[in-house]
Design a protein around this nucleic acid. Structure first.
Lengths: 340, 340
DNA sequence: CAACAGAATGATAGCGCTATCATTTGTCAA
DNA sequence: TTGACAAATGATAGCGCTATCATTCTGTTG
């Protein structure tokens, strides 16, 4: 039943002090005399003592768990966010624990319950579209929280993100500025963020008089490069005069690019392509692909830093952070002529 | 200091039984009378009781944690493995906990210690190149273990993987079979698996008399599509007559493809390209790209299933599983002529 | 109907740690 | 040297649960 075997009592005995002093030496060394500290440290090292995190959690009533809920572990976008989160918490006493909601609000609710049962020290959750119950759970939780990826008017606590709708608006405007007259929009895995991007596309398309529902193709399927090709093919079949596409993400954009090449339709001259997220590969593609850059790793870092501040009893200066976005213009939307 | 507030004692009081009976009702319902069970279940639901996992762990001396150590969270390959792992454990009482060794054996050792301190119910670790200390820690651990990704002669416990060296041998042979005479090898983020793939390439290159150290380019940088382009460029500069490349992974292969296109070198006629892992995008690229398919998600599923069996006190029928690999031949190595 | 096996339940004692408060030790001014 | 006060340490009592064993309650049998 025993684990490592070495308990705080063993250390205390060997060091000739009480368990309480050992406990202190480990957590608040400044409250222990230099002599005792040295003694204890030596024994800890010699015995290889490691505190039992469960006993600590139970006795102290709090944990060192940072619970993170993301919709997908296989999506590059969240992988980047995670890298930012790990970058901040690695080497600290906080332990990141990952939960995967698989784009389901119900699963997210269940996950939230599971996590809260563990009394996390802090939480990071994705997006602003939690169920009412989840929102309530999070609001009542005895820990601080950062919502990431998006911005919204009703933050539960803290927030780091950017406006997907505005980003899509700007990207659509970019296509029009580049002389494209009949832009389309393709999207897969319709989640709330995707929806807002579509709205952004529609905003600008409508207001510029180029809106055509036949140039909007969405599907619930998970997004892949192959699917990008398929959606592009569908677009060109149902609206052959489409001269550009805003893709909901870079996988789709890459697939669309390949599909155009396969059909001998030159990019950017015959078809302009704009992706979303600006994954690393977009700059390496041939032709290079324009994309909406989002600051994903920075988002993870910011969220973690803010959480860390609250854990140290500092209030972050800005509890709501807009990281913005940038349209990274590349060859795929840079025509060599204008078909006016 | 209290958490949810509702403890097992509260439930017991309300249900008019002892805490012990509640504890039993929750974990071994068949050992409790139907009447008591119904009573208790009702109270649990009404009060929304959730057992405290820390108290459970401390009292029972075991946990429901499955510890998984992978070298990277942002690498598609491991994302796929994780998907397989989650697929098996989701919905069970086991909780997957992820650790990121960032391709460092020392970090892996530290992580292993951290995880073992938590007395996981089972572990999944990547590869076979642990430090001696890590190996010892794992061997002594009071839980079962699966090593994934590779095969080796000295498994610590169970193992699911495939031979990277043989895979690279086959891929190299494939290039030669397709009529390529001067194959090269490019690799980034040199980890032990990459090394073995290089050995596989060298095996066949040597034995076919086409070995040329100037056609092997490796770097410690993390692998990206952009880097694939750069390494390909370097290859074509230092060995301009290279007529094909085996890429250590698909990101590099895609970068190499783009670089060739940028230089107007036709793929597959002027240069053949073979990737490794067979990520989804390889089938969508233009031209489609040949790659060594590895069964990553299946690897995660197998490892998890085996672990689950041991957790249920069944011994898996095969503790060492070779999932093999397949060369998926596509356009990028299908020449329309033979330059013999 | 006594006797008894087996099922159901409960009392007790921790798991390894920390919060709290009491006690001891050390330091310094008067 | 003494008293006052702070610093250092320790004794005690749980945190919420489960393992273990003792007890009580069935139901069955001769």
């Amino acid at each position: 039943m025993k684990s490592t075997g070495v308990t705080i009592a063993d250390v205390a005995r060997e060091a000739g002090v009480s368990p309480m002093t050992v406990s202190r030496a480990l957590r608040e060394p400044e409250r222990v005399s230099a002599k005792a500290l040295k003694q204890i440290t030596a024994v800890v090292d010699r015995l290889g003592y490691q505190p039992d995190p469960y006993a600590q959690a139970l006795a102290a009533g709090r944990t060192n768990v940072i619970a993170v809920i993301i919709p997908s572990v296989t999506n590059n976008v969240f992988a980047d966010v995670m890298r930012g989160i790990y970058a901040i918490f690695e080497g600290t006493r906080w332990q990141v624990q990952l939960g995967n909601s698989r784009y389901s609000a119900d699963l997210e609710e269940a996950l939230t319950r599971t996590f809260l049962r563990q009394r996390p020290a802090g939480m990071i959750v994705t997006g602003i579209d939690q169920t009412a119950v989840t929102r309530q759970l999070l609001a009542d939780a005895p820990c601080r929280l950062v919502q990431i990826m998006e911005l919204g008017d009703t933050p539960i606590d803290m927030m780091v993100g950017f406006s997907h709708r505005e980003a899509a608006q700007d990207a659509t405007r970019h296509l029009l500025d580049r002389g494209y007259k009949r832009p389309g929009f393709i999207a897969a895995r319709i989640d709330p963020r995707t929806q807002r991007r579509r709205l952004g596309f529609e905003d600008v398309a409508r207001q510029s008089g180029v809106y055509d529902p036949n140039r909007i193709i969405t599907t619930l399927e998970p997004s892949t490069v192959t699917l990008g090709g398929r959606l592009m093919a569908q677009m060109l079949e149902q609206s052959p005069d489409t001269d550009s596409v805003l893709c909901n993400n870079d996988d789709l954009a890459l697939g669309a690019l390949f599909e155009c090449q396969r059909r001998g339709m030159t990019v950017p001259d015959r078809v302009g392509i704009c992706g979303f997220n600006d994954l690393e590969m977009m700059a390496a593609a041939y032709p290079t692909v324009t994309s909406v850059k989002s600051y994903r790793e920075e988002m993870g870092r910011q969220a973690s830093t803010m959480l860390l501040q609250t854990l140290n009893d500092d209030e972050p200066t800005t509890p709501i952070v807009d990281l913005g976005f940038d349209i990274i213009t590349r060859e795929s939307t840079t025509r060599t002529f204008d078909d006016k």
